[in-house]
Simulated scan of single mutants.
Amino acid sequence: MNRTRAGLLAGAARAFADHGLRRSTMQSVAVAAGVAKATLYNHFRTKDEVARALLALELDRLSATAWALPTEQALSTLSDELGAHPVLRRLAETEPEVLTALLTTDRWAELTGRLAAALRIDADAAELAGRWLLGVVLQPGRSTTRHRHAARLSAVLGAAPVAPVAPVSPGAASG
Rank of each mutant, 00 (worst) to 15 (best):
D60R: 12
R61A: 13
R61Q: 13
R61S: 12
R61M: 08
R61K: 11
L62P: 06
S63P: 08
S63I: 07
T65W: 03
A66D: 05
A66N: 06
W67M: 15
W67L: 15
W67D: 15
W67T: 15
W67E: 15
A68H: 13
A68D: 14
L69F: 09
P70K: 01
P70R: 04
P70W: 07
T71N: 09
T71G: 08
T71M: 13
Q73G: 02
Q73L: 05
A74L: 06
A74Y: 01
L75E: 00
L75K: 00
S76D: 06
S76L: 03
T77P: 03
T77S: 07
L78H: 00
L78M: 02
L78F: 00
L78I: 01
S79L: 03
S79K: 03
S79T: 02
L82G: 02
L82D: 01
L82W: 08
G83Y: 02
G83D: 07
A84Q: 15
H85A: 10
H85P: 05
H85C: 09
P86S: 13
L88G: 10
R89F: 06
L91Q: 09
L91S: 12
L91F: 13
L91G: 11
A92M: 05
A92C: 07
A92S: 10
E93I: 09
E93R: 14
T94P: 11
T94S: 15
P96G: 09
E97I: 13
V98M: 10
L99Y: 08
L99T: 05
L99S: 03
L99G: 06
L99A: 05
L99P: 08
T100V: 14
T100S: 13
A101P: 07
L102S: 11
L103R: 15
L103K: 13
T104K: 06
T104P: 03
T104L: 05
T104Q: 09
T105R: 08
T105S: 10
R107M: 05
W108H: 01
W108M: 01
A109K: 05
E110G: 05
E110Y: 04
E110S: 05
L111C: 04
L111G: 02
T112H: 04
T112Y: 02
T112I: 07
R114M: 07
R114D: 06
L115F: 00
L115P: 00
A116H: 13
A117L: 14
A117C: 11
A118T: 02
A118H: 01
A118Q: 03
L119E: 02
R120I: 07
I121H: 00
D122H: 09
D122T: 08
A123L: 11
D124M: 10
D124L: 11
D124P: 06
D124G: 10
A125V: 01
A126P: 07
A126T: 05
E127D: 10
L128P: 03
L128A: 11
A129E: 00
G130T: 01
G130P: 02
R131Y: 07
R131E: 13
W132S: 06
W132I: 04
W132D: 06
L133D: 02
L133H: 01
L134T: 14
L134K: 11
G135L: 03
G135Q: 05
G135F: 04
V136D: 03
V137F: 04
L138A: 15
L138Q: 15
Q139I: 12
P140F: 03
P140W: 06
R142A: 15
R142Y: 13
R142E: 15
